[in-house]
Design a protein around this nucleic acid. Structure first.
Lengths: 211, 211
DNA sequence: TAGATTGTTAATCGATTAACAATC
DNA sequence: TAGATTGTTAATCGATTAACAATC
């Protein structure tokens, strides 16, 4: 049962709800009204109620929301109760950082292999992973149950790797290459584009300095 | 002369225009119409014309846009012709990756110092930088001309560091800590929240699998 | 019960798209 | 000139906010 059309604007607010609810939970806050939450999270109370009601009536009139229950519900909505098997492609600086990134496991993602195209890297170890040859990634995805690929390679090779992954049956890509990958519409791509973020910062800095 | 109110939606599309125009330029394409650009970038032609006209009339009726000129103009709008002096705080995996990230210099950002709180890290070298003690960051910002700080530390210490930076007169923060920093409204904060990105991917994967 | 706060409908606002006169 | 395409105004669409009846 996929949900009726939830807009990306709503979806991208969900992790924020989850995070603020976890904070409240760690402070032993039992319940919270949309008004109180609005004050700490910075969305309007109205928006909070609208957002949550896309997924169900989690609150109670006159009471508000139970923090623990809501936190758990949003976790479920985000799919954090699931396990996804991931491979990482591109064991450069960023790739290594992500391999060691613990938030990854907390979200239910488990890295099962690491690949690189550089012969000097192949065979070296990152955490428990012996770096494998990128040439074998298609075969590996075919023969193992891989849900997502984390793509951390320069933009030149990225589309080619994406094509391989798609052929091998990958379901999602967490893409750090500064390029818009072209994939069939049933493959999920979530981009983290540091260049775009940096350019945005540059723009805002410039505007701010000029007044 | 700051621009009339440009929405964030428009601003976040600018880096994409810049990137696609660079691609066209590298393919020696001289001119392009909003319709042609729309086909490769995936925005509507109407939106492209609206977006660009926020900043000036860069096109010519009956002709379209000169690729090189437009690319250059957007670079200027993004402030890529400027120099910003940056420090990096938190020399862990991600911090090291960013220190070595070349796109950074291409955008006009120059790293001038690297800090870490871990005594075992202090004194070690990353690229040309001897890692300095985070305790000295406030003093350093005060005494040197620092425009932005790249914050790559765990969320616990992040607000405290941000407070120090603000006191010392920082103008912008590129924030990788998974927390919403509270800073005065004249300080620019650009967030890169890997956890939120990952949770979004998890949500979309789940929805996709469930149909 | 009275007070509080949700869930939900209606109103507003802003962003996107369509249309077309201006003009190269 | 005729054709193409912009710049810009108007129309549409979608997202946010306001309002309030339902109800705990």
């Amino acid at each position: 049962m996929g949900n009726k059309n939830i807009s990306m604007a709503v979806i991208r607010r969900l992790p924020k709800y989850y995070r603020y609810l976890a904070d409240l939970l760690s402070k032993d806050v039992q319940r919270i009204s949309s008004k109180e939450l609005s004050e700490i999270i910075g969305f309007t109370a109205s928006q909070i109620r609208q957002d949550l009601n896309n997924f169900g009536g989690f609150g109670q009139q006159g009471y508000g929301y139970n923090v623990e229950a809501l936190h758990k519900e949003i976790g479920k909505i985000l799919g954090l109760d699931r396990k996804y098997r991931a491979i990482l492609i591109g064991a450069g600086n960023l790739g290594q950082a992500l391999t060691n990134y613990t938030g990854f496991r907390l979200a239910g993602f488990e890295t099962i292999a690491v690949f690189d195209a550089n012969p000097k890297m192949i065979g070296l170890k990152i955490r428990d992973f012996e770096i494998m040859d990128s040439d074998n990634v298609e075969e590996f995805v075919r023969e193992n149950d891989v849900d997502i690929a984390i793509v951390c390679i320069p933009k030149n090779g990225a589309q080619l790797v994406a094509d391989k992954l798609v052929r091998a049956g990958i379901k999602g890509i967490w893409n750090f290459a500064p390029i818009d990958l072209e994939v069939p519409s049933d493959i999920i791509v979530e981009n983290v584009n540091l260049t775009e973020s940096l350019f945005t910062l540059s723009y805002l800095m410039k505007e701010n300095l000029e007044g």
